[in-house]
Nucleic acid binder design. Sequence first.
DNA 1: CCATTTCGACAACCATGTTGTCGAGTTTAA
DNA 2: TTAAACTCGACAACATGGTTGTCGAAATGG
Lengths: 156, 156
Amino acid sequence: MSSDSPGFELPLRLFLAFRVLIDALHDELTHRGHPDVRPMHGYVFQAIGPDGTTAADLGRRLGISKQAAGKTIDTLERLGYVERDTDPGDARRKIVRLTDRGTDCLALSARIFEQLRAEWAQTLGEDRLRALEADLRSVTPAEPFLLDVPGWFGNS
Amino acid sequence: MSSDSPGFELPLRLFLAFRVLIDALHDELTHRGHPDVRPMHGYVFQAIGPDGTTAADLGRRLGISKQAAGKTIDTLERLGYVERDTDPGDARRKIVRLTDRGTDCLALSARIFEQLRAEWAQTLGEDRLRALEADLRSVTPAEPFLLDVPGWFGNS
DNA sequence: CCATTTCGACAACCATGTTGTCGAGTTTAA
DNA sequence: TTAAACTCGACAACATGGTTGTCGAAATGG
């Protein structure tokens, strides 16, 4: 049936490849002291950045409401990955910053991703992998962020 | 910072490429009379298959509970894409089948995916695209389904 | 100085998943 | 053949994570 057509296979393989990487990352993170981080948290960490941000700004960057961003921050604060700090220059704002644990997790994720990429390079060959990355770059928008995954895929 | 490392870029590009295809598909589906189908519905249609299935079985195939599968079926039934039929051979079961509209949508999706793949082939070259598909196949599990996307990515 | 904007908090709501329970029907095995 | 075990779909209760709307406090700009 139609599910065997190459057109149907391509998006499926792209998603599965993404998922293989993310699952491997989080298996490894779990074994190295970060069992509670969820796939999207890594991208939240990157969106927060080294200088911190605010709930409203984080929501803008992630494409969700500031309230939803606030709830995510609540969760990460409870897990010890971020901390809120009052902005001395603007009494309305509360700066969200990565804690040491958050920074560690982000750096560890980077190392694990490098390792996973190295494994792919061994399987595919470095040239093929570089070609794959170049091809993906040429069919995707340059602008990175905006991971509103939950909801986007959802049922109705 | 670390977000520029190739290890970080690879999963992001894979996801963006997936998303580019899915968004293009649903833009086109919207313009061709199917504005209400959501990204995951296409995979539900494929999981239902030409012979139909039951709510419990659909849940098993999609990796969600039978109750969640039942709610998805409710939605698709309301939209006119599937219909429930009592199984003459087993009074407990209700067979879920694609309606003509559901079958049309699935066939249309296949045509649109083929068209999108053709566009990529024009951008990348047919050989490069075939290489990309082959490489993705060699880093992903052979077994296809199990799209429990919503939830899997989620916050906590 | 006052109008507008922006921030974070709170409440209400909705969508979509989860378990648990249940009665009805089927299957299996003593 | 009958009783136990299983499976199906439905219903209820709940958790999560998103949404909008409102609000007071603080900043900003005419």
